[in-house]
């Protein structure tokens, strides 16, 4: 178990394994995203109250779910950074934040686009939307801190601590925002939640959620691999990997693009 764990945390091992897996995960992501999009746009029946605007849900809900679990994963990576000081976790931490922020942004904007035809307004200060906005602020904080510190591993450790503090605060923020919302707004703006969605409605949603997670995995792996090339320059295996004189295919690519 522990040898496996240490192996997993070695950048070289991760680079090789992820290189083998990446095409398959990318294929799965394209497949799921394609199927999900077609089903969501063309095959799912329209909502009897909201009409076709409810199809935005298939973007909005997966991005909202992913936005929250991205922060969770970032904080977990942060915990690993602080406890075991694993370099790979530092890279993961750094690479999750921008994606998390963009997917939170997507959730917010699609929420607005969905809200306008449904409620007649782009933005309401409801509990979920407001929590989402605050989550975006938390991401911005981590990204800003990351970019302000020059020392790579120091930046990672600072961001790790900040994301953990954020993680502890998220339930408190959520609770307070929900409580604030019940005080200030009668819950008139509520989604028409039906107890049971028919299968042809929730199946696309399920597929889209999986698709979003797969895209996230692909992006994360690609970013971490770049980060490894950037930070592990001193190691022999990276030098061998990028050395133009060692490999003809890379050499030609350098001649074409490098100079």
């Amino acid at each position: 178990m522990w040898t496996w764990y240490h192996k997993l945390s070695s950048p070289k091992w991760f680079y090789q394994l992820s290189g083998q897996w990446l095409p398959w995960i990318a294929c799965a992501a394209v497949l799921f995203l394609g199927t999900g999009l077609v089903m969501a746009l063309a095959y799912a029946p329209a909502d009897y109250q909201q009409g076709n605007s409810f199809r935005i849900m298939y973007i909005h809900v997966p991005s909202a779910i992913l936005a929250q679990s991205c922060y969770m994963m970032m904080a977990v990576a942060g915990g690993i950074v602080l406890i075991w000081r694993i370099k790979l976790a530092e890279m993961v931490l750094k690479c999750i934040a921008p994606f998390g922020a963009s997917i939170t942004f997507l959730a917010l904007v699609t929420g607005g686009i969905w809200g306008y035809p449904t409620w007649g307004t782009w933005w309401v200060w409801d509990a979920r939307g407001t929590s989402m906005l605050i989550l975006l602020f938390l991401y911005f904080g981590v990204i800003a801190l990351q970019s302000a510190i020059n020392n790579t591993s120091g930046a990672a450790r600072a961001c790790a601590l900040l994301s953990l503090v954020g993680l502890v605060n998220i339930p408190i923020i959520k609770y307070s925002v929900e409580w604030w919302n019940t005080l200030h707004q009668p819950a008139t703006f509520k989604l028409t939640e039906k107890p049971s969605m028919p299968m042809e409605m929730w199946l696309p949603l399920l597929i889209m959620v999986v698709a979003f997670y797969l895209v996230f995995t692909v992006v994360l792996i690609m970013r971490v691999r770049n980060e490894i090339l950037e930070r592990e320059y001193k190691t022999n295996w990276v030098r061998k990997l990028i050395d133009p004189s060692a490999d003809r295919s890379i050499k030609s690519s350098v001649k074409n693009g490098g100079e």
Binding site: L41, G51, N52, S53, R55, I56, I59, V109, I113
Partner: peptide, 12 residues
């Protein structure tokens, strides 16, 4: 998209 085309397509 039954009058909601702009919203649905812009979101997607």
């Amino acid at each position: 998209m039954g009058k909601h085309g702009v919203y649905v397509w812009s979101a997607y």
